[in-house]
C-alpha cells in the first residue's frame, strides 16, 4: 500500500482513525572490553494506525510497504496496517477508550 493509498484509507475510513508515520535513523557504537567492537547503522521506517470503534480502540503496527492485520494498543510504535482485516481483531480484543 502506497503512502497516498494509506492516507486515503484513513481519510475515508468511516470511524475516527489516526495515522502515525515514522522514519528513524540510528547509529550505534559498540564497545566490548574497552575495544571498539563495531558500528551499526539502522533505518527504521514504518507506520501505525489507531482506530476507535464502539468505544474500543485498536492499533495496528506494520513495516513500510507491508500489510499489518493485528491490533495491539500497547505497541503502537511498530509500523503498517490493513484496515479490513484489522477490524475483526480490534473487535475481538476490545479496549475501552478512557
Amino acid at each position: 500500500m502506497t503512502l497516498k493509498q494509506t492516507l486515503d484509507t484513513i481519510r475515508n475510513y468511516p470511524e475516527p482513525a489516526e495515522l502515525l508515520l515514522s522514519h528513524r535513523y540510528l547509529r550505534e557504537v559498540n564497545f566490548q572490553d574497552n575495544e571498539l567492537k563495531d558500528i551499526q547503522c539502522k533505518e527504521v521506517s514504518g507506520k501505525a494506525v489507531r482506530v476507535i470503534h464502539d468505544g474500543r480502540v485498536g492499533a495496528a503496527p506494520g513495516v513500510f510497504r507491508h500489510r499489518w492485520t493485528g491490533c495491539c494498543p500497547r505497541r503502537r510504535s511498530s509500523p503498517g496496517w490493513d484496515v479490513p482485516r484489522h477490524f475483526d481483531c480490534r473487535k475481538a480484543t476490545g479496549h475501552c477508550v478512557k
Binding site: Q40, E43, V63, G70, G80
Partner: peptide, 29 residues
Amino acid sequence: LTRLGISEDQGFAVRACVRGGWGFASLNS
C-alpha cells in the same frame, strides 16, 4: 482476550569486514 495481533515485517541486514573491522547496517526500505 487482552491482546491479539497479526503482523508482517520485512527488512535487510548487511555486514561487512574490512581489515578486521566490522560494519553492520539494517534497513526496511
